[in-house]
Amino acid sequence: MFAIIDHYAHKDSWLHRWHPLAKVISLLACVVMIVSLRQIGPLALALLGSWLLALGTTVPARAILKRQKVALLLGTAVLLVAWLTGRGQTHWQLGPLAVPVDPLRAAATLALKISSVLVLTVPLLATQPFFVFLETLRRLGLPNRMVSMLLLMSRYNLVLADRVQSTLRAAKMRGLRISASPARLRPLGGLFGSMVLQSLEQAERVDQAMRLRGFTGRIRTSWPYQLRPADVAKSAAVLLGAAILLAWDLWR
């Protein structure tokens, strides 16, 4: 998820040129509106709109598509649970197959919501340096401490994932077998313990490195942005689109 942060930040598009404050506020508002939609039609259009925005960022479609897996997975899970617990009353008869309509609708709604929100994180995160995004959040009132935490998390995500992978690989090369027996699980516990410890120690060293480079609690970053009429127009257009979907959802 964090892999695309900053990777496309220095490309150029209308989304890159959008004032970060205007962009973050508008897109976060869109997220709220999408989450409150209840019907398949408006949600499908919201997903389409999110995709259009994401594709406008120069991030390749394949990278965006990767973010949809979670949504499909969760949707399927909801479908299965609803189906198994027998809560679907209406059925469509598809040949020999009785398709429960309500669980299907619930699953689709959830999957569409999650998809749209995940796709929206692309224009939100990938169109300015991560520092600028953090500074935007700070200007919107997020405390300095949270901002620093987000910065570290963005990096730690990668370090931690790598560490888990390389520790497991090293342990497997030395004969570790993963299975459910308690005797086999014990070394795994020790392994994770040491990984957590290592990560904590590294977090401390990174904190020291940040302080050595002048960090005193607030990240300073460049802010060469000025709000122009074009920024307001972009925000207005995006918010109007979201508002129309919301209205459609409410009055249908």
Partner: peptide, 12 residues
């Protein structure tokens, strides 16, 4: 070096 580099890109 992993202790020293904590931002997303080299430039940052």
């Amino acid at each position: 070096p992993d202790d020293q580099l904590f931002c997303a890109t080299v430039y940052e």
